Simulated scan of single mutants.
Amino acid sequence: MKEQLFVIGDIHGEYEMLQELLSYWDKETQQLVFIGDLGDRGNASSSCFKRVHQLVKDEDAICITGNHEQILLNFLNKPDEYAANYFLNGGLKTIESFLSETDLSKLQPEQMAKQIQEKAPWLKSFLTNLPNYYEWYAYLFVHAGVNLTKESWLNTSSYDFIWIREPFHNGRNRTGKTIIFGHTPTNLLHGDMKNFQIWEDDNKIGIDGGAVFGGILHGLVFDKNGMIHHYGVQKKNDKEVITKTYQ
């Protein structure tokens, strides 16, 4: 087990921001963890999926499944049934990025799903096998949260791990864990549409900084005693990203 852990918030296709944040990761001493929602909405979603898949395969990174991984998997499995829902949630950006040389107006959803799997034969297996959570010392990493009304958080449903919001945000954390999660942009948690900083309350840390909405892609470093570094990547303009060190 490595001495430290580096966790990255919801990426949503912001590949340049991801690459910038990864430059602060020390692979020799830090376990890399992604909190889910790698693609959709952002223009470079396919590059984000490819990069994280490579890091999981070659560098033993951990990637927790998010709701956007699930809706992509739904689309790949049953494209005609789930196309409308996937498109509504930013999935066209992912499809366009995987099929960038294809005229999508000439394709039906079934053809889109088939061509994506031909171009990325690893993708469906990768999505299918992502875990719902990751435990490390006194920390619990999940995409959306856990059901705090259960006697044990381990009894949280697969749906709640990737979709839960207010019942987790507002519930009392008796798990004995510090829970790091994404899914809900932190400006909503702060009640301030301009505040994309991490959100902390009751041993819960929200790290979805709304990167794809003009916010921050957060990277937090922990050791067994607490957070020791905090990096945040933002877009300065369409051609440049900048990193701030908060801790």
Rank of each mutant, 00 (worst) to 15 (best):
M1R: 02
M1F: 06
K2V: 05
V7L: 12
G13K: 06
G13L: 02
L18P: 02
L22I: 10
W25R: 10
D26C: 07
K27F: 12
Q30C: 04
Q30V: 10
L32V: 06
L32E: 00
I35V: 08
G36C: 06
G36L: 05
L38V: 14
L38W: 02
L38G: 02
G39K: 05
R41W: 08
N43L: 14
K50G: 03
R51E: 00
V56A: 07
A61P: 03
C63E: 00
C63G: 04
G66M: 00
I71F: 09
N74V: 08
F75G: 05
P79K: 05
D80I: 08
E81D: 14
Y82D: 11
A84E: 05
Y86T: 04
L88W: 10
G91C: 03
L92I: 08
K93G: 12
T94K: 12
S97W: 08
F98N: 08
T102F: 10
K106L: 11
K106D: 06
Q111Y: 12
M112S: 07
K114W: 08
Q115K: 14
I116H: 03
S125V: 10
N129F: 10
P131Y: 02
P131I: 08
N132Y: 14
Y133V: 13
Y134M: 08
E135R: 15
W136T: 07
H143W: 01
H143E: 00
H143S: 03
H143L: 02
A144K: 05
V146F: 00
N147R: 07
N147S: 08
T149C: 12
T149W: 06
E151H: 03
W153L: 09
N155V: 01
D160A: 01
F161H: 05
I162N: 01
I162Q: 05
E166L: 13
F168Q: 01
F168L: 01
H169G: 09
N170W: 14
N173P: 01
G176L: 03
I179G: 01
I179T: 04
I180L: 09
I180D: 02
T184R: 01
T186H: 02
N187G: 11
L188S: 07
D192S: 10
K194L: 15
N195L: 00
F196T: 06
W199R: 00
D201N: 04
N203A: 15
N203F: 13
K204F: 13
G206A: 13
G209T: 14
G214V: 07
G214F: 03
I216M: 06
L217W: 13
H218Y: 04
V221P: 01
V221L: 10
F222R: 04
D223T: 09
N225K: 11
M227C: 11
M227P: 05
Y231R: 03
Y231A: 00
G232K: 11
Q234I: 13
K235Y: 13
K239L: 09
I242T: 15
T243R: 14
K244Y: 15
Y246D: 08
Q247E: 12
